[in-house]
Amino acid sequence: MAAHVGSIVTAWFALGLIAPLVVLLLRGAASPFVRRHAVESLNFQINAFVLTIVFALLMFVLVGFILLPVYGVFYLVCVVIATVRASNGEEYRYPLTVRLVS
Rank of each mutant, 00 (worst) to 15 (best):
M1N: 09
A3D: 10
A3Y: 13
H4Y: 06
I8V: 14
V9T: 07
T10M: 06
T10S: 07
T10W: 06
T10V: 01
A11V: 00
A11R: 03
W12C: 12
A14Q: 05
A14V: 12
A14M: 05
L15C: 02
L15G: 05
G16W: 07
G16I: 02
L17K: 03
I18S: 08
I18T: 06
A19W: 02
A19V: 11
P20T: 04
P20H: 07
P20I: 04
V22S: 03
V23T: 11
V23Q: 13
L24A: 11
L26E: 09
L26F: 10
G28D: 04
S31T: 11
S31L: 10
S31K: 09
P32A: 02
F33R: 10
V34W: 13
V34D: 09
V34C: 07
R35D: 09
R36F: 12
R36D: 12
H37E: 06
H37A: 00
A38S: 12
A38H: 05
V39R: 13
V39P: 02
E40R: 06
E40T: 03
S41F: 11
L42V: 05
L42P: 11
L42T: 08
N43M: 06
F44R: 02
F44D: 14
F44P: 08
Q45E: 13
I46A: 06
A48P: 02
A48C: 10
F49H: 06
V50W: 09
V50G: 02
L51T: 08
L51Q: 08
T52Y: 02
T52H: 03
T52K: 01
I53M: 01
I53E: 00
I53V: 15
F55A: 00
A56Y: 15
L57Q: 00
M59A: 00
M59D: 07
F60R: 03
V61D: 07
V61H: 05
V61G: 05
L62S: 07
V63M: 09
V63I: 14
G64L: 06
G64D: 08
F65Q: 13
I66V: 13
I66G: 01
I66F: 12
L67T: 08
L68P: 06
L68T: 03
V70W: 01
V70R: 00
Y71R: 11
Y71I: 05
G72T: 13
L76E: 08
V77H: 11
C78R: 13
V80D: 07
I81G: 01
T83W: 09
T83G: 11
R85Y: 13
A86E: 08
A86T: 15
A86N: 14
A86C: 05
S87W: 10
N88H: 14
N88A: 13
N88L: 14
G89F: 10
G89K: 13
E90Y: 02
E90G: 01
E90I: 03
Y92V: 04
Y92L: 03
Y92K: 03
Y92N: 08
R93Q: 14
R93D: 15
R93Y: 09
P95D: 14
P95I: 07
P95T: 11
L96Y: 12
L96K: 12
L96W: 11
T97A: 02
T97Y: 09
T97D: 05
V98H: 09
R99N: 15
R99L: 09
R99P: 04
R99S: 11
L100Q: 11
V101G: 02
V101Q: 03
V101D: 01
S102W: 01
